Amino acid sequence: MIIEYANKKEDTQKVLKPLILSMIMYIAREYRLSHEIVDTDPLSSQLFSYMESHSDTITLSDLAAHFGYHPVYLSRLLPKLFGKNFSSLLLDIRMKKAKILLDHTDLTIEKIAAVLGYSNSSNFYKSFRHYYGKSPRSLS
Rank of each mutant, 00 (worst) to 15 (best):
M1C: 11
I2E: 15
I3F: 09
I3W: 08
N7S: 12
E10W: 13
T12Y: 01
T12C: 10
Q13H: 11
K14S: 10
L16M: 05
K17C: 07
K17G: 04
P18N: 02
P18G: 02
I20N: 08
L21R: 13
I24P: 06
M25I: 05
I27D: 06
I27H: 08
A28Y: 06
Y31V: 05
Y31Q: 13
R32C: 06
L33H: 12
S34Q: 09
H35C: 00
H35A: 01
E36G: 14
I37N: 13
V38L: 09
V38T: 10
V38K: 14
V38Q: 15
T40Q: 12
D41F: 11
D41R: 13
D41N: 08
P42E: 03
L43Q: 00
S44V: 11
S45T: 11
L47H: 01
S49I: 08
S49D: 10
Y50G: 01
M51Y: 05
S53W: 15
D56R: 15
T57L: 11
I58F: 06
T59Y: 05
L60C: 03
S61H: 14
S61M: 13
D62M: 04
L63T: 02
L63R: 10
A65K: 15
H66V: 00
H66L: 00
Y69E: 01
Y69M: 08
V72S: 12
V72I: 10
Y73M: 07
L74Q: 04
L74I: 01
S75I: 04
L77Y: 02
L77F: 04
L78F: 07
P79Q: 08
K80G: 04
G83E: 03
G83L: 05
G83W: 06
K84C: 06
N85K: 06
N85Y: 06
N85A: 07
F86V: 00
F86S: 00
S87Y: 12
S88K: 14
L89N: 04
L89H: 03
L90T: 00
L91A: 13
L91K: 12
I93L: 09
R94D: 02
M95H: 03
K97S: 12
K97E: 05
K97T: 06
A98P: 01
A98G: 03
K99L: 14
K99M: 12
K99R: 14
L101S: 02
D103S: 15
H104T: 15
T105D: 03
L107P: 00
T108V: 12
T108C: 13
E110K: 14
A113G: 02
Y118C: 09
N120G: 03
N120Y: 14
S121A: 15
S122R: 14
F124Y: 02
F124T: 02
S127P: 08
S127F: 03
R129P: 07
H130W: 05
H130M: 07
Y131I: 00
Y132V: 00
G133V: 01
K134H: 09
S135T: 07
P136E: 04
R137C: 11
S138I: 12
S138K: 10
L139C: 04
L139N: 02
